[in-house]
């Protein structure tokens, strides 16, 4: 079971934040096929948001084919977004390397914004290069 949270200052609509958190959890393997999402009542009792916001997020996830409501039982994950076991097993060592890299970046005097800018621009270059090679 996952727990939702809300960033009021992000500028992202609350229902989209909920969708992103589910997709994220699916990607990280925290949610797997057959897992139940928290009930609408559980979510609103925790996050203090409008019940219709949660319903809208769940409907959208259903439309994307990621979850399926079962009347009286709850909403269940029907598909995973994570790669195979191998990909999930690779997460931990990659995370450790990234943590090490972040430590070195901080030691070199980069602040949060510097780190974010560097990550995003490198990621973009890398993706473009790969796309170029394929095309």
């Amino acid at each position: 079971m996952i727990e939702f949270h809300l960033d009021a200052r992000s500028g992202v609509a609350p229902y989209l934040q909920l969708i992103q958190q589910v997709r994220h959890a699916l990607r990280l393997g925290l949610l797997k096929e057959g897992d139940r999402l928290p009930t609408v009542k559980d979510v609103v009792a925790r996050v203090a948001i409008n019940p219709n916001t949660v319903l809208k997020a769940y409907r959208e996830l259903e439309y994307e084919g990621l979850v399926q409501p079962r009347p009286g039982l709850g909403t269940f994950v029907t598909r995973t977004l994570a790669g195979g076991d191998e990909a999930i097993a690779a997460h931990e060592p990659l995370r450790r390397e990234l943590t090490g890299w972040l430590g070195r970046a901080r030691a070199a005097g980069l602040d949060d914004e510097d780190v974010e800018a560097l990550l995003i621009s490198t990621f973009r270059e890398f993706s473009e290069e790969r796309a170029g090679r394929r095309g």
């Binding site: 609408v40 009542k41 609103v44 009792a45 925790r46 996050v47 203090a48 948001i49 409008n50 019940p51 949660v54």
Partner: peptide, 14 residues
């Protein structure tokens, strides 16, 4: 304030 709204939303949802 947060606790009050949590209770209120849970009631409205149910």
């Amino acid at each position: 304030r947060r606790e009050f709204l949590q209770g209120l939303m849970a009631y409205a949802a149910e």
